[in-house]
Design a protein around this nucleic acid. Structure first.
Lengths: 216, 216
DNA sequence: TAGATTGTTAATCGATTAACAATC
DNA sequence: TAGATTGTTAATCGATTAACAATC
């Protein structure tokens, strides 16, 4: 049973800790869970993932998990705690802004279910797209943004619009009371303190690949 | 004029250095270049970007750039060096595998031009899609993969297929002589030593946002 | 109990920042 | 020249790893 405490939650987690927690989560989900292995030691998990065992214990301790000496950690509990801690076990209504190829792809991305994210509205400015249906989503006009965000307590907006439209739409989203913006536009946006922004910069991935291609 | 030397290129760059170089590049491109500012000091650039000035000098030194005492760094040269070092100034023919929403979005993603990447073929297994045209790309069957990669010296494959198809296709790509795979499938793939793989894990971005939503 | 594994403190490593001599 | 800025060494900070006592 999950009983994360406030202390562990309020302490700041660096990106690398979050990335490792996600790695454990996926690893258990993909490789371990089907094996009916009720307990796993930090050393075993660490060696399977090619990382250090102390790090695993520290990461798990940071989210309030307790292991059993001589036994290890309860496999399902590890997943459960990470799920709660990361917010995958809560429900997150979301909207997608931009009904182009990328927006459509994101609006119908099945994986989101695994993380508690449910896209239930897709918006666009193009009159030709409005009221058409894209993969079960009726495309709505931007002026419906505010009522929908307010009525359905939407926390997260996924932004997949051309760069020049990103900032104005971010402003509208903030005005409508959105709490987090996940943007895929290749341009930076600014929002007031308290609003969470994550810029999904595809160029970082590309740059890493090209750097290795060119230099190795 | 660019004259990066072998020494700087062969030294290993951590991800954070690459990310900062990209940040400088984008910052100059978006904010500085239009201002006709021929030189900029590391301290000015650093304070604009809210980072440390020594870090800027170290990063630029690492790719072989030299500044002028009392003057600073030549703005256009900073961009030029990063461009060459990161491989944005070379031409990278690429193919996209998977003509779903995400694959289509990636195949027509204009930003890629800025990084020297040119997608010139789009593949799918679905007979209904083969030979249709998606945004200027004729969709080709998988058995054309090998000849096209070989004939056109394609270095990079962008993989946007369902998870269960990712590994078999990665194997085909490797057999065809691909040098790098950029995968968007939510599953891990294994490739022989020497092939570059970058897994674009959308769940990391999502996890970061949800963590902040839930815990703050 | 004996011994495997946790939880945690101490040591190490690497990355970031400060300081400052060299430079133009 | 005087002084601003680079390039680089030394100091600091934080993250990772090793060591080991506590635990069941």
């Amino acid at each position: 049973m999950y009983k994360g405490n406030r202390k562990s939650k309020s302490s700041y987690m660096t990106r690398s800790v979050l990335e490792r927690l996600l790695l454990y989560y996926h690893f258990i989900d993909e490789h371990l869970e089907k094996k009916d292995l009720p307990y796993i030691s930090s050393a075993t998990l660490a060696s399977l993932m090619h990382i250090n065992d102390t790090q695993v214990r520290k990461d798990l301790a940071a989210i309030g998990l307790k292991g059993l000496p001589r036994v290890g950690f309860a496999t399902s509990q590890v997943k459960e705690y990470i799920c709660h801690f990361m917010g995958f076990c809560s429900h997150h209504p979301a909207v997608v802004i931009g009904a182009g190829h990328l927006g459509s792809a994101l609006a119908s991305y099945r994986e989101f279910n695994n993380y508690g994210v449910e896209v239930f509205a897709l918006f666009d400015t193009d009159p030709a797209k409005i009221n058409t249906t894209i993969r079960n989503h009726r495309v709505l006009p931007i002026d419906k943004l505010e009522p929908i965000i307010k009525d359905f307590n939407v926390e997260l907006a996924i932004l997949a619009v051309p760069p020049e439209a990103a900032q104005p739409l971010a402003d509208k989203l903030v005005a409508a009371g959105i709490r987090a913006i996940w943007t895929f536009s290749p341009t930076s946006i600014t929002v007031p303190e308290g609003v969470i922004v994550r810029h999904e910069h595809l160029s970082i991935g590309l740059a890493e690949i090209l750097y290795h291609l060119v230099n190795h």
